[in-house]
């Protein structure tokens, strides 16, 4: 049977997380279909059709999917799911919001945040902030899965020309209205897909220091910017900078932690990075236990020196 991937998109383009989810789907065996539900989303559907490994794109273009609310999208997916063995979404805020709703509507369990596919019904997922890996087997007829994007390589975004087929919209439930969005546009790479991340914690002391010190370093390295919860709670940077168990899970080639102590909740979000650098003035900081390269130094000296020398 075929596998359905719910695309994450902004009507114009496909978000990178969708590419990792397609790769996870390809490991299940079966044709991979991608659902693009939006309003005026033809461009996103075309982008999905180019993704390597996609056999078919199903597009549902209707005004009630403009804001992609969980209620309306879940209603649509519920209607389509019967034709599939698996339904997958990325474990991003959007996927985590919507897919459990579909699971309950279908009366099946959801397997959250998988990091490996063992077979068509058996998956590995982290629990306890990544301190344990559980292998779970599902007995449900349809398996609903969210995918930890950092655990699967991105599918090629080009080269394919899968057929695009329209599907009818489901009822507009009309229970939720979008009042507004405040999206911070950034010229930097997306945190979830960046090769290099410069991340700052409470050690920076203020939002001003965060920007003054870390932005030049990020510019120099072409890096995305991240933060600890303490830095976000203190208002140095917006919420979506938070890396960790309850923020974003990242696994870049290089993660530079500046003034971050290394609490387990923070480590849960970055310990799969290829190379970890820690800059901290406290030689006992737990971050050094996972760092490939640890520099015990005052960050106010070390970071400018790094910018000058890199």
């Amino acid at each position: 049977m075929a596998i359905l991937v719910i695309a994450e998109h902004d009507n114009q383009s496909i978000k990178a997380a969708t590419l990792n989810t397609v790769s996870a789907a390809a490991k299940l065996g079966g044709d991979v279909h991608v659902l693009v539900a939006g309003a005026g989303c033809a461009a996103a559907a075309e982008a999905a059709a180019k993704v390597a490994g996609v056999a078919k794109v199903r597009v549902c273009d209707a005004p009630q999917y403009e804001a992609q609310t969980a209620e309306n999208v879940a209603e649509l997916v519920k209607g389509l799911a019967g034709g599939y063995s698996h339904v997958l979404a990325p474990a991003t805020p959007a996927g985590k919001n919507m897919l459990p709703r579909v699971a309950a509507l279908l009366d099946v369990a959801q397997i959250s945040d998988i990091v490996a596919v063992e077979s068509a019904d058996t998956f590995v997922r982290p629990i306890y902030a990544g301190n344990a890996l559980a292998t779970v087997k599902s007995a449900d007829a349809i398996k609903l899965i969210t995918v930890r994007t950092t655990a699967f390589d991105a599918a090629e975004a080009g080269g394919n020309a899968a057929p695009v087929e329209a599907v009818a919209a489901a009822a507009d439930l009309g229970v939720t209205a979008l009042v507004g969005r405040e999206i911070v546009k950034s010229a930097r790479p997306e945190l979830g897909a960046a090769k290099v991340i410069v991340s700052g914690g409470r050690g920076l002391g203020s939002g001003d220091n965060y920007h003054k010190l870390l932005e030049p370093l990020a510019d120099k390295l072409g890096a995305a910017l991240g933060a600890s919860r303490a830095a976000v709670d203190a208002g140095y940077v917006p919420n979506d900078y938070q890396v960790g168990q309850t923020g974003k899970i990242v696994a870049p080639q290089l993660y530079i932690a500046v003034g971050i102590s290394g609490a387990i909740q923070h480590l849960a979000g970055m310990k799969d990075s290829k190379v970890i650098v820690a800059i901290n003035k406290d030689p006992e900081a737990p971050i050094f236990q996972v760092a490939d390269y640890g520099l015990v130094a005052d960050l106010f000296d070390a970071v400018p020196a790094l910018v000058a020398a890199a």
Partner: peptide, 12 residues
């Protein structure tokens, strides 16, 4: 709290 920032919903 969503990817990229914040959104406000009105729910019944």
């Amino acid at each position: 709290e969503i990817d990229g920032g914040l959104e406000t919903l009105s729910v019944k």
